[in-house]
Every structure is written in C-alpha cells, then in structure tokens.
Amino acid sequence: MTTGKTKTAGALAAIAALTFIGVSAITLAAQNDPNAAPQGASATADRWLHVSVINRDPKGDRVRVNLPISVAEGVLSSVKHDRLDHGVIKVDQLKMDEVDFRKLYASLKSAKDGEYVTVESASCNVRVAKDNGFFIVRANDKSKKESNIYVRMPFAVVDALFSGKPDELNVLAALRVLSSHGDSELVSVKDSENTVRVWVDSKNSTD
C-alpha cells in the first residue's frame, strides 16, 4: 500500500516537474518575443491613422483602414523606390498652373488668421483659410447634389512636409509631426454616394 502511494506520488512529482519544465520553456520563448512586453505601452503611446470610406447605402461598400503611424513611419523610412527615398518624395516642381505652392504657403503662414482665398464660380466654391494653427480648405461641387470637401491640416505638418529641398516633400517628417499632434480630423469628403474620412487619434479602431 505504502509502495503504491509512493509510486503515485513519484509519478505526480515527475509530471509536475515536466509540466514546470514545459511551461518554463514556453514562458522563456514568450519573454524572448519582442511582441510580449511593449504591447501595453505601445497601445497607449501609439497614434493611429484612420481612413474610412463608407457608402451611404446600408448595403453598400465599406472600407476601413487603421494603421499605427509608427508602422507607416517604419515602412516609409525603409523604402527606396523610384521617387520615394526613405520617406522623402522627389517632385520636379511644386507648381501647378504656374502657382508656386511653397510661396503661397509661406505667405499664408505668415498672415493672420482668416479666410484668404475664396473662389465662387458656377461649378464650385473653394475657400482657403488659416485658423488657429490649421490650414483649412473647404470646397463644394455645385454640379452635384451633395459634394463637400473639407481638409484641416496643422501648419506644423505642412512645415515638416516642406522641410526638405525645394523639389522634395518630406512625408516621413510630416508623419512624425502628425503623430505628436492631438486627435484631429484631416480630411472629410462627402457626396451623395460616399463619405470619406481621414483622421488621427490614439484608438486602434474606427468607431
């Protein structure tokens, strides 16, 4: 009887020891996993770039993208392809119809808050304004029943974008500045069919 109990106890002890070894090995593997530790910290510190395209029809198409800005930064900084070189895009000239956007931006930035460009035509209305450190563009297409475009970009982000050489756009620097900014809606486009939104916040999902 005693021998039987001793054998059972021995077997249980062996199983316990082996389970301990197994669990220790798994724990060790988990500790080596760089994913394990920073998750919580990253969840609070990470900024997320969100894009949502929603068709107004309840059965219509829906696209949602949630991207940690750190991932976008990491990817951008390692791409060297065509005109994109480690987060910097080479552009021939930042001019359209002989309008120099850098000069236009510089003069807008140094001006006081207010509405600076207003275009009212038969087909559309465009308003460009400066408000409390933000560069704001509002446009609507009159030919469509409903078509509104709203862009609200912090000046600091545009500064970072133009921080390189005259023929460069520093997208990586702009992203870095964007990630240090507060929650902000950047782009909103609404028409009779779709609603498109681009915004930055600290949530990892779209509402």
Binding site: P34, N35, P38, Q39, G40, S42, A43, D46, W48, K59, G60, D61, R62, V63, R64, V65, N66, L67, P68, S70, V71, E73, G74, V75, S77, S78, V79, K80, H81, N204, S205
Partner: peptide, 28 residues
C-alpha cells in the same frame, strides 16, 4: 530584394503594435 528592408521594417513595427484590425473591406 529591394523590398526586403520594407517587409523587415513592417514586421518589426507590427510586432510592437497592439492587436487591431488594420484593413476591413466589406462589399456586397
């Protein structure tokens, strides 16, 4: 070859990022 550093960087950053849905596309 030229895309390996990009994949490397993406994987490294994804390791650090919390669980989340990155892309969702819903059509009919």
């Amino acid at each position: 070859r030229e895309w390996l550093p990009v994949v490397h960087a993406a994987l490294r950053e994804l390791q650090k990022s919390p669980d989340a849905i990155f892309v969702e596309v819903q059509t009919a």
